[in-house]
Nucleic acid binder design. Structure first.
Lengths: 336, 336
DNA sequence: CGTAACAAATGAAACGATTCAAAGACGAGT
DNA sequence: ACTCGTCTTTGAATCGTTTCATTTGTTACG
């Protein structure tokens, strides 16, 4: 009783064949009421629990879906992850979450892991170049859905938000409220960030005399934001931008901390500030933060839906769903 | 080539026995240089990837550790989870994270799941009464470590933070800064929350004329905090508490949002506010939030260490590690 | 040259579930 | 009593890996 009982133990105990026990578990209708009861009783008495490894081995596939995100600590991703989990649970699957931390080797590590686990499918916000690996996976019947990244629909499906449009919305809003010398803060090596910048630059070209300066940050965290903010504070006031667009809210909150720390810079009077993602904490910031809202629940849910579509079609049909972001105006970009 | 190659395919391709391939993977020293190279070449050519299910089945145990938290969206837990993941990775294990959402049935669901997966061990912040299930698991050789909850060391190990002390520290600080009519906000049905309240009450009894009112919240989220905050705003100013102690920072941020929304209540002049957890966002709040800091990284890391100890000792030795929380004073509780 | 000692390679058995062709049980119809 | 059809049950084969007792190959030494 100390060790775990197997289906064979249950069969012996209930005096039936192993196949019958299996049927009770998987096709209850095939089994007569009497034996079903007897088997269930034995299962309860022995405390039998299915061995998922054995089941998977036989099935050749797990009921697991792999999800690789750039940072689980980032509310944007944790929200997407939660939505994906809920949707997957409804389909009887489990989501395994891996955090790449924007590190290509960690990303590769998780891909290896998921491949060993024979996951049903993969949802990924890629860091490195993973297209070859995705091709390999597809050949092997493991569909992939890119998350927060537009896919070539020849290869796989994707759910994303129009980052260029989001960048445009943010910059346009800053320009519309009278700011001209803008700064962009973000890790531009990340594709989404680069797109947001591109959108912002487009908005800037539409307005005469507007400029945008790019400040690269070491990551997309609150800490990285604080570092950039400190540099801004050190500058001669005349050299400071009139408005700062951060590629996510964590960065923006970090920048805000630095700027407001010494009370020499006022937000939004001296410098307007806008973030991206509209995380829950944006509204509670020192100065409530304007932001670009992304439909995280829809992203997570749709990712799972597309994965199911891929599976149903045998990995032949791909679809790229693009959501549109939304400007949320708060005090940090109030009147010029 | 479309389907996944098995170890047998590799063996055939490299013209060796399956056992040899297995040895190349698991005991490279037992294999001669020549064959090792040949096998590795075949592995690369066939794109062989280990089938983890088969390996687990044979091993009788997985390299997976289950972690069940109350809410992954809560930075406290995501930080603990990340630390645990890092520590587990160093030991060659993977952490599977389940979010119970403070729902006993979801918690049970994840426990079932983890048991089917034959996890190496379980880390859990319990919601419901799980002690019997933990006993069952222990009998079956699956050690459990309670996270953020003190364990009876007769049964299992635990890592926790002294919640009563934390509650005491928070309330004492409010009292020390001259506040007398306190309010406590939290979901008191959660044990940690109840302990924090108890500690706070202890501090209150030490000071003449001090009182503490308990406001139960529907959950421990920003939203729940906003609801409580709205009720406070609706009250006659004379009826409002002088200081509010929230059982976590999310709640506190929510309360802060409500109180500062209409600018009728000033923090900390009219109402002082202190939270719990000291999440990254606490410092960036409208009014930087005082809080009680918990050593999340140490919690996660130690949890994995204790799990390893349990495994080494065959589940006989248990240890309860209790960390001490720390008061972090910011503007939200500034001078009386 | 014989043999002991060691290294390397072998391949069948085992892990625990699912599947499926085959056998068994039972009742109805003739 | 016999056959047919339906419902239930059986148990061997299978999935892919690891393990380990055994065989095969090689070297060293007397």
């Amino acid at each position: 009783m100390s060790q775990t009982a197997s289906i064979k133990d249950v069969a012996t105990h209930a005096q039936v064949a192993v196949g019958t026990v299996s049927n009770v578990l998987n096709y209850p209708d095939r089994v007569s009421q009497r034996t079903k009861e007897r088997v269930l009783k034995s299962i309860a008495e022995l405390g039998f629990v299915r061995n998922d490894a054995a089941r998977q081995l036989r099935a050749g596939q797990s009921r697991t879906i792999g999800l690789i995100v750039l940072d689980v600590g980032n509310p944007f991703f944790s929200s997407v992850a939660r939505a994906a989990e809920d949707a997957a649970t409804a389909l009887g699957s489990v989501v395994l979450v891996g955090d790449s931390g924007q590190d290509a080797s960690r990303e590769a590590h998780y891909m290896d892991l998921f491949q060993e686990q024979r996951v049903q499918g993969l949802l990924i916000s890629p860091v490195g170049n993973v297209s070859e690996r995705i091709d390999t996976l597809r050949e092997r019947g493991v569909p992939t859905v890119l998350v927060d990244e537009l896919a070539d629909t020849e290869r796989c499906s994707s759910v994303s938000v129009d980052d260029q449009e989001g960048g445009y919305l943010a910059a346009r809003h800053l320009l519309d409220t009278g700011r001209r010398r803008l700064a962009f803060v973000g890790t531009t090596s990340i594709r989404q960030v680069a797109s947001r910048l591109k959108g912002a630059q487009r908005a800037v070209t539409e307005v005469n005399g507007a400029t945008i300066e790019v400040l690269d940050s070491a990551g997309q965290t609150v800490l990285a934001g604080r570092q950039v903010g400190n540099k801004l504070v050190e500058r001669d006031p005349a050299e400071r931008p009139e408005a700062v667009f951060c590629s996510n809210d964590l960065l923006a909150l970090g920048v805000m901390q630095s700027l407001t720390m010494l009370r020499t810079v006022r937000i939004p009077e001296d410098i307007a500030l806008i973030g991206y993602d509209d995380i829950d904490f944006a509204i509670s910031a020192v100065v409530p933060l304007s932001s670009i809202r992304q439909p995280t629940e829809a992203l997570g849910r749709t990712a799972i839906e597309l994965l199911a579509e891929e599976q149903d079609s045998g990995g032949t049909k791909h679809r790229a769903v693009v959501f549109t972001p939304e400007l949320v105006v708060r005090q940090s970009t109030a009147g010029a």
